[in-house]
Amino acid sequence: MTLAELVFLVLAVIAVGSALLSMTSGQLVHSALWLVVTLGAVAGCFLLMTAEFVAWVQVLVYVGSVVVLVIFALMLTRQSTGEKSAEVTGNRWLAAILGVVAAIGLGATMIAGFRGEEIEGRRIGTAGSIGHALFTDWVLPFEILSGVLLAALVGAIVISRSGSDR
């Protein structure tokens, strides 16, 4: 077992464990912070899989903005009767069963299909190579995506404004 594999396994354990804590924590803000740990660990995994650029984007976008957004949302919607708000609902046993079934099903499929395959890391996903791919082969989807982002931006503003007008 190489060092990279060892580090990957450690990161994987951290990611899954903090994800579980995030999804079961009784404190809303703790959930968000545990998610930061998870996302960071996943970013580390990206790095180990030769996807440097994606790893940095993950850290910048997710850890940097999404989680901040979430924490703001949690603070804005703090409820006076919110003691129970962080808890899980009565649906949790069914949800747990479904989650386990989904994970096992996916894992079993992966094991059945890709056992013994190795990642050799022949092409490093540097900012240069990704940027080259993005602006040659993927330029059209990239532009469309910008349109989607713009629409989401406008939509978010409209939804927020119409609520405050009332």
Binding site: M23, C45, K84, A86, G99, A103, E117
Partner: peptide, 27 residues
């Protein structure tokens, strides 16, 4: 590195995420 490592990690994270969507009370 075996391909299975990230795939199984992904499966586990997916299951946890599904549980969170279906079980958390807070939107």
């Amino acid at each position: 590195m075996p391909l299975l490592y990230p795939l199984l990690l992904a499966a586990a994270l997916f299951g946890v995420g599904l549980y969170g969507v279906l079980a958390r009370r807070n939107a």
